[in-house]
Design a protein around this nucleic acid. Structure first.
Lengths: 203, 203
DNA sequence: CTCCAATATGGACAGTGTCCATATTCTCTA
DNA sequence: TAGAGAATATGGACACTGTCCATATTGGAG
């Protein structure tokens, strides 16, 4: 039977699933996804090497669950920031970009984990839900003007821009060493480029 | 001693290093980076499991070499496309985006390999060189107008946009199923968004 | 022709994911 | 309240992996 209510100190260990995810997150932060090994997670949680199998059928399933949890944390941070931010579309886009860039730089391994599609081969559902939340957030910011398709393109462009920038930063591909450019962060600068357009800002 | 000239049928096997990279690329295309195992590569190439050690000290080194080779292939395709493309900045940006998106969709595992920083822990050099080539290509397209920093932001924005879009497509995150939008590809559409700006196209 | 370094081989070891039979413990029901 | 069955945890096993090692082979420089 599954725990029906509180589920604290339930069964033998007491929510081992949660404890395993905690352990996995610790290992992830320290050594990257490669360090998140079924056996290492079990060791970290102080259980037998085969105990995780009762809660996650696979290493992939474990990583998927971890990614889902992280995705929700990130989504929450974004939503919170949007709650505080002013109502200007530019400010709101800056807020989103800022939260995501900061989170990714603070927890690089976590952010990387989010975008390994392999992890979601099992249950795309929860990741897709979180993704939809973020997508809709930007769509709302960009408002109702323009045709439906043009808005979709704008939303996709915004997400591509932010995610791409973070990826390049994390992988160290960006030769650009300066985070600051004329008083604002590089992230803010490229968001402005997207809003104002390359063509316009060059004239 | 190292082969000095032609290096064909050299030594015991005859450029085993190259054969190993061929085998690795085959395995990569079929089963993703996880399938590129030192032993599997050796099997595929028909040599002992420890033979690769003579040419690549690590699995990481093997992957790095493979990534470098793929990076050069992609770079070449981009440069070629730019040679054919018209001189309009918009057309040239479209050309770059198109080549990269098409390449990534055709060889998803190869594209993914390029952006795993782990692979370059050993020799960042060659990957950085290839990255610089692409970076400079966009920088040249965007021309000499504007301040230095604002140009850098524009180039970074362009690369972030393209790379981010490809990543989202590859990971299946984009709920967007339609590649085509009002006669042009989605990739072209978001490049146009970047050029014209979100603000402008909404007025 | 001889020798040496580059190259290839096979064995070994620790670590991994996953399956299995077994042991323990919780919860619901009879 | 007693027991039964399901959920949970354990330890062993297997095949696979990366990497090291001692050994064998080979090609070219001297």
């Amino acid at each position: 039977m599954r725990p029906k209510k509180g589920a604290r100190k339930a069964y033998h260990h007491g929510d081992l699933a949660q404890a395993l995810l905690d352990a996995a997150e610790r290992l992830l932060d320290e050594g990257g996804v490669g360090a998140v090994t079924v056996r290492a997670v079990a060791r970290e949680a102080g259980v037998a090497h085969s105990a995780p199998a009762n809660h996650f059928k696979d290493r992939a399933a474990l990583l998927a669950a971890l990614a889902t949890r992280i995705f929700q944390e990130l989504t929450t941070e974004v939503v919170t920031a949007l709650g505080i931010s002013s109502s200007s579309p530019r400010a709101r886009l800056h807020a989103i970009a800022d939260v995501i860039v900061q989170y990714a730089l603070r927890h690089p391994h976590r952010y990387r984990l989010l975008w390994r599609g392999e992890n979601f081969a099992a249950d795309k559902s929860s990741a897709e839900i979180a993704g939809t939340v973020l997508y809709d957030a930007v769509k709302e910011i960009l408002g109702g003007a323009g045709t439906e398709t043009s808005i979709d393109s704008q939303v996709i462009a915004a997400w591509s821009l932010i995610h791409g920038y973070v990826s390049l930063r994390l992988e160290g591909t960006l030769v650009d060493g300066s985070d600051e450019v004329s008083g604002k962060s590089r992230a803010a600068a490229i968001v402005d480029v997207l809003i104002d357009g390359v063509g316009r800002s060059r004239c």
